[in-house]
């Protein structure tokens, strides 16, 4: 076990542990903050797999913007941080379904990529990612931009339909 693998396992354990805490804590703000730890640990895993660019984008976008948005939405619904989240009676069903989904996804990914080795050490840079995106994966990239544009327009339409202009 090389040092990289040990640190990777530590980060992975941190990610899984904080994700569990994010799910089980009964204070919403704590849940959002454990999510920050989870996403940060995932970014650490990315760095260990030489995908530096993705790691910093993960921090910049997820931790810096998405979690802030989540917390902003929490604040707008005027939740007191001491009030516990609503607990539905379907908890155990949801847990079982989540477990089934996790096992299924995990099995798919492991059987698909088992035994692969990461070659070389310059493949996670911005240059290589840019090359791949704009040479091999241009069409999915453009479709994704279309999807994002549709989401943006939809959000504007929904938010404006309340006020008659």
């Amino acid at each position: 076990m090389s040092a990289t693998e040990i640190v990777f396992l530590l980060f992975a354990a941190l990610a899984v542990g904080s994700a569990l805490l994010a799910m089980t804590t009964n204070q919403l703000v704590h849940s959002a903050l454990w999510l920050v730890v989870t996403l940060g640990a995932v970014a650490g895993c990315f760095v260990l797999m030489t995908a530096e660019f993705v790691a910093w984008v993960q921090v910049l976008v997820y931790v810096g913007s998405v979690v802030v948005l989540v917390i902003f939405a929490l604040m707008l619904t005027r939740q007191q941080s001491t009030i516990s989240a609503e607990v539905t009676g379907n908890r155990w069903t949801a847990a079982v379904l989540g477990l089934v989904a996790a096992v299924g996804l995990g099995a798919t990914v492991i059987s698909g990529f088992h035994g692969e080795r990461i070659e070389g050490h310059r493949i996670g840079t911005a240059r290589s990612l840019g090359d791949a995106l704009f040479n091999d994966w241009v069409l999915p990239f453009e479709i994704l931009s279309g999807v994002l544009l549709a989401a943006l327009v939809g959000a504007i339409v929904i938010s404006r339909s309340g006020t008659e202009r």
């Binding site: 530096e52 910093w56 984008v57 921090v59 910049l60 810096g64 979690v67 802030v68 917390i71 911005a126």
Partner: peptide, 20 residues
């Protein structure tokens, strides 16, 4: 760092969480 600019911007965006 090769990605120095992104690293610095990402670090600054985490600092937001503190005041929040």
């Amino acid at each position: 760092l090769d990605l120095g600019l992104f690293f610095v911007l990402a670090a600054m965006s985490v600092g937001v969480l503190g005041t929040l």
